[in-house]
Amino acid sequence: MIPRVTATVDLAALRHNLGVVRRLAPRSRVMAAVKADAYGHGAVPVARTLEAAGVDALAVACLEEAMQLRQARVQAPIALLEGVISSEEAAQAVYERLQIVVHDHWQIALLEQLPASARLSVWFKLDSGMHRLGFPLTEVPRLVETLRRHPGWSFQGWMTHLACADEPDNPFTDEQIARFEAALAGIPGPRSIANSAGLIAWPRARTDWVRPGLALYGCSPMPGSTGAELGLKPAMRLESRIIAVREYASGEGIGYGLTYRCPERMRIGVVAIGYADGMHRAFRNGTPVLIRGRRAYLAGRVSMDMITVDLREVPDACVGDPVLLWGDALPAEEIAQWAGTLSYELFCGLTQRVHFRHLDAAGAR
């Protein structure tokens, strides 16, 4: 059976990108974000690749994501970025040797219900200005006292998250870092600040731990740039194929709502991908795809199972030709702009109808 839509993930690219991260922050340990199914790239093969490459830790959002990795025999340290939400989850996290990121006092209360013999591993998350999760910075003395009350807890460190790191000219990132540093002045424990944007654009954020996500998958978190410009290699190629070619007269409308009108007599290709595969309906006329190494352009609305493209720039295109939606030759950062979104959402939006292949130097997995 020939897959309609294939996402090919290059595991060697992940290792390359981890190397770029290490060169940017040579004195930092690396906690790789593999939450949300490794940003849509496949959590288990990605985690196994990064673990084999020597990453220091992995980060997921929740216990369910961590359990998927443990059941796949991933042994690397795993941090739960949202922590735990019940005493049952807390007990399971201890059993699975997970690091619990604690962001509120009610979570501390949950952990204190565990037996004194429980081997807890915790981070404390501080809110330095993002105003999402995290203890107010004024709570640091109280948190230090909590650690004193629980000498058996294995304290991993202090973390915070940056709100505007992808805006190099925005002074708020420096303000956040300064607040975080001031709140922890003289207090022991590793620090973790940088996400991908912080790692790339803010050297002060390269502390004891960095937490790259998007950069590991080969995309730039910085507006107006691509991963390749930063020395990164895109890890994913999304491809489909042409399943029909038709010729229409000038003025004919294409697709639902006839939102595209042929400006001249022209060939239209029908490609087997739609919003049921993760091709956003918000993509506008003119969104590029790549056929035979040349750009063709979306002509008409994205439908559930198909898109239609203007083939005037690829006159030799025919049924069966592969169509690249994004990948090394067509950056996801560029394509995302045509739907008014980010590459994060493109990757995470792929559905179970997409066939995934994970390739390494030895071939398909």
Rank of each mutant, 00 (worst) to 15 (best):
D208P: 00
R206Q: 04
A215N: 08
R211L: 04
L216P: 02
G227I: 01
K233F: 13
C219G: 13
R204V: 03
L230D: 08
S240P: 11
G218Y: 09
T226S: 09
A228P: 06
M222T: 15
G251D: 06
G218K: 00
G224S: 02
C219Y: 13
R241W: 06
A244I: 09
R211D: 01
M236E: 11
L238K: 07
K233P: 14
L214E: 02
A205C: 07
D208C: 00
E252T: 14
A244G: 05
P212N: 03
Y217K: 05
Y217L: 09
G227W: 06
C219K: 12
R204N: 10
P223N: 01
E247A: 14
R211G: 01
E252F: 14
L230W: 09
Y248C: 14
P221L: 01
I243K: 11
Y217V: 11
G213F: 05
I242K: 10
G227C: 09
L232D: 09
G231L: 06
S225F: 02
P212S: 04
V210R: 06
V210I: 10
T207Q: 12
G224C: 06
C219S: 14
G227D: 12
V210F: 01
G227P: 12
K233E: 13
E239L: 04
G213K: 13
E239C: 05
L232H: 09
R241A: 13
E239Q: 11
L230V: 07
G224K: 07
P221V: 01
G227R: 06
R241Y: 08
G231H: 11
R246I: 14
S240M: 03
P223S: 06
G227K: 10
T226I: 02
P221S: 00
R237T: 15
G218P: 00
R206V: 03
G213R: 06
W209L: 09
Y217N: 09
P212D: 02
E239Y: 03
Y248Q: 15
R204S: 04
P221E: 02
L216M: 04
L216Q: 03
E239V: 10
G213W: 00
P212W: 10
K233G: 04
L216Y: 03
G251A: 05
K233N: 10
W209V: 15
L216A: 00
M236S: 04
T226K: 05
R211H: 08
R241N: 11
E229K: 14
R206H: 05
I242Y: 00
L238C: 07
G251Y: 12
S250R: 15
E239K: 02
G251L: 08
D208G: 00
W209R: 08
Y248E: 14
A235Q: 03
S240R: 00
S225L: 14
E229S: 13
G251T: 09
Y217H: 09
P221I: 07
E247N: 15
K233L: 15
S240K: 04
P212T: 02
T226R: 07
E247Y: 05
S225V: 13
L216D: 00
V245K: 00
A228H: 05
R211Q: 02
L216W: 02
M222Y: 12
P221R: 00
I242N: 07
V245P: 01
R206M: 02
A249F: 12
A215P: 09
G213P: 12
E247Q: 14
R237M: 15
R237E: 15
T207H: 10
S220D: 12
G227H: 14
I243T: 13
A249C: 12
A249V: 14
A235H: 04
S240E: 06
